[in-house]
Design a protein around this nucleic acid. Structure first.
Lengths: 343, 343
DNA sequence: TTGAAAGCGCTAACAG
DNA sequence: CTGTTAGCGCTTTCAA
């Protein structure tokens, strides 16, 4: 154990192995330079003995890759994102990266500060799920030429092409509604997050499209939205019951949670009293009985796609931006009652 | 927008502001050097115009702090850890740090690789929840003089003092059991994770101590453990019923989940058929009815304590290690039935 | 096959 | 008050 305050450097290794720092550097950067095996061994042994670890910071200022990637998400508590983060991290790890996870908490100003700090750290690349789905901070990434991919939230009216990986929100709303229609329901409500983000609106569009397709009128009062909280969900749950619909699409898992609590607390049974399809698959859905029918978003595929897109975009920085929209699946539970068609 | 491939450096700013790189450096490191306001303005303006951001990597090799902290946890999917991470990150952010989150997945070898990479990145400090509660990798941190605090899992027989923040596992087992005893139960089982980690054993010790205190015999067959999965939990749930106990301590939320699913699927009602106290407060507990009585671990306090301890230990590296064990609380639900004492 | 040395972006004496 | 300059640990010519 070294007694010195100073960190162990390449120079210490060179002295210990009685060679030059250049040789040590070559040994540790396995360039295609041939080094006599005996010397290489000596260097490795010396390094191991004094506990040398290459300083990645110093290495990076000479133009080498930094070895750090970042993921910036708007809602870290949301397990949809947490799970994708875990997967992206493990893919990045295989490539030798360390990954910094950041949470903007849906605040563009926080996000800006985070991105500036990440830029100061000279990260090699970044996966960004933009706060409030706002595009503004991405210019920082572009200006500093940091390869990046936008995850899950797009910029509908944008003039600038981005690397993008998301899932099809329209389709998730459509599938959920269609599933209920197929079971014979006609009075179907939609409850969701009153969100500033286009995603959620697209789900409503999908809901409407499905209804229209079967010639069912989509009355505006059947579409309810509220803030992103279980309490708002409870209120919507109560409304659902008052309105006397036979089925509902729970358009966001956070408000869905409140609605389900309301149902349980007031003896409302699914699917007997109301049929339900929820968009999303939060962990808690796994413990509820009867099991909910959910729309499963392609988390795994999204994580893999965004990680690979980022890695590719680091490898070939001039590659034109790619946009991928991945499909959802219906995950059947027992929360939808088939009712006889009334012709 | 610069057309150059190269990053913007202090030198570019100096040229643009027609001054020296030293002045620019001083402007951006707000040392106590006085600079004529007019010049300072000019530098700032030039920097803003060409989008200069200080290269933290270069800055760090001159002995400045790196600006990166790390949290390495063994189970990233476990929301107990996720929630603490979110809090630690937000405290660290206030101090200007960027935080890297890593997941060793309960594998000491992965953990070693992660720590080596973090050391290469010259992180300023680290919060570590050690895989399998093993001490071995902490020597890397010590050898490289990286301030660190061990979170949640301790090293019982260790000779080396560590900064440590954890919660009192013995007490959590004790409290849970005591709560059931107070409600009049006498045949109380314990089910938990068959863990290689001392924490879980301590919970059993607490369980036994509570029973002993009231002169209730703690038969060995009442203590069940299994692997960390919902399936193992289901099996234990079935056993609980077969054994005909009136109450159970669900000693780990992951196996508890399985047991609760078994109960629901087989029409076993809590608290009518069995009284339950669960150690831990996973998010899914919030959607179950009747609400479970839980032992709440001091997540918030642990996050705050570990973050502050780390920051302190970075500020004063020679401070002797501190160890903190924080207490749990009973969070009452409706899963415990009071039964009349049989004298 | 190896080593000397220039230089990456930045900091901090030290000189002016 | 400001600029010159010597490094920090590392990579990479270039020469030996």
């Amino acid at each position: 154990m070294p007694k010195t305050r100073r960190a162990v450097t390449i120079k210490d290794v060179a002295v210990k192995a009685t060679t030059s720092i250049a040789t040590v550097s070559y040994v540790f950067s396995n360039a295609d330079r041939y080094i006599r095996p005996e010397l290489r061994e000596r260097v490795l042994a010396a390094a191991a003995e004094i506990g040398y670890v290459k300083n990645a910071a110093a290495s990076s200022i000479k133009g080498k890759r930094r070895g750090i990637l970042a993921i910036v998400v708007a809602q870290f508590g949301n397990s949809f994102f947490t799970r994708m983060c875990v997967e992206i991290v493990s893919i990045a790890r295989r490539e030798g990266y360390v990954v910094t996870l950041c949470n903007s908490d849906e605040d563009p100003e926080q996000e800006r500060i985070i991105l500036e700090r990440l830029i100061a750290q000279q990260i090699d690349g970044c996966v960004l799920c933009p706060a409030l789905s706002r595009e503004e901070n991405t210019h920082l990434l572009r200006r500093h030429r940091i390869p990046h991919v936008i995850l899950e939230r797009s910029f509908p009216g944008s003039l600038i092409p981005h690397n993008f990986v998301g899932h099809d929100n329209f389709q998730s709303g459509y599938l959920a509604t269609r599933h209920l229609l197929n079971a014979g329901h006609r009075r179907i409500a939609f409850s969701g997050w009153d969100s500033p983000i286009p995603n959620v609106c697209e789900r409503v569009d999908g809901y409407r499209a499905a209804l229209r397709e079967l010639g069912v009128s989509a009355a505006d009062e059947l579409v309810m939205t509220g803030e992103l909280s279980a309490d708002a969900g409870r209120r919507m749950g109560a409304e659902l019951i008052e309105m006397g619909v036979t089925a509902a699409v729970l358009g966001h898992h956070e408000t869905a949670k409140g609605a389900l609590l309301h149902f349980q607390d007031h003896g409302v049974r699914w699917p007997d009293d109301i049929s339900l399809v929820m968009i999303g698959t939060p962990e808690w859905a796994g413990v509820l009985r009867p099991q909910l029918t959910c729309i499963r978003r392609p988390e795994h595929e999204m994580a893999v796609a965004s990680a690979n897109l980022l890695l590719k975009s680091i490898a070939t920085p001039d590659h034109p931006p790619v946009s991928q929209l991945l499909p959802c699946l219906v995950q059947e539970g027992k929360s939808v009652l088939a009712i006889p068609q009334v012709p």
